[in-house]
Amino acid sequence: MAQIVVENLVKTFKVGRRQAGLWNALKGVARREYTTVRALDGVSFSLEPGELVGYIGPNGAGKSTTVKVLGGIMVPDSGRCEVMGLVPWKARMAHVARIGVVFGQRCQLMWDLPAADSFDLLRDIYRVPAAVHRKKRDMLVERLRLAELLTVPVRQLSLGQRMRCDLAASLLHAPPLLFLDEPTIGLDAVSKLAVREFVRDLNRENGVTVILTTHDMDDIEALCSRVIMIGRGQILFDGTLEKLRSCIPMERRLVVNGVAGEVALDIAGVRQVTREGDRLSLHFDPDRIPPADLIAQLSRQFLVRDFLVENQPIEETVARLYAEWRL
């Protein structure tokens, strides 16, 4: 049985609109114009227990609205939504007791006190029996290596340390479902890896269902077997990562530094070439021209001293999907 069912969810917002300028502002005092924005425009998907899903899309696409609806914070205009048999916004208390939510940019711990105090408070908030709490907490402390961080006021922790504490805080009541909203944003490379590894284990070993929203394609590649992409309030794609790749010609980007002099390129499989000073970047299709061949071709024209091959950023993938589907 599906753990989350979302059917035809619609949510619209009224946004005040104003032309620039003092005169228009004065006019706006008397009469204000509104435009309607469809943040969710018929969103449907379902999730089985134990899935680890990447929920991606550009800013303003409807990601956070979806998370707010699933979290019971926001009531949609229409559509059906059930999480573990409950309608989130109708049974808020019962519902939120069974989910965990982490916001990458918002710390839920008390700023001036050690995280241990916040953990104790959460035990009382969620009414977790003391013995159960202690066991769960010790497990999380060990897994996330928090032992030394627990006694330091949260404000003195680094961003990565804080995120690890925040993760633990969201899991103390052992929710079977976890929402992660940009958990790796702003983290250093080591912390990112630690967070990813923890989430992967949580999903595999404890069977916790995870919905991960992110802008970091590496998060998705490292963790998610399934990707749901949303744009302008609609689901643009729902399937495996491989399927997403095959949806559009998967591009890579080659960046070459220290290029001197004029360069004229016309290589099959290279879509776009941009030049900024001594830096040259080429968008290419690795199926049509393998990176090694491309570099070999470039080496014929000039000396390639330093280069870098990058994945296409998620924004670009989405942008190309937009273009393709003329949204």
Binding site: K68, G71, I73, M93, V96, A97, Q108, R127
Partner: peptide
């Protein structure tokens, strides 16, 4: 406040 709404109290 969103965080408070996410807690069962």
């Amino acid at each position: 406040f969103d965080r408070m709404m996410l807690r069962p109290r």
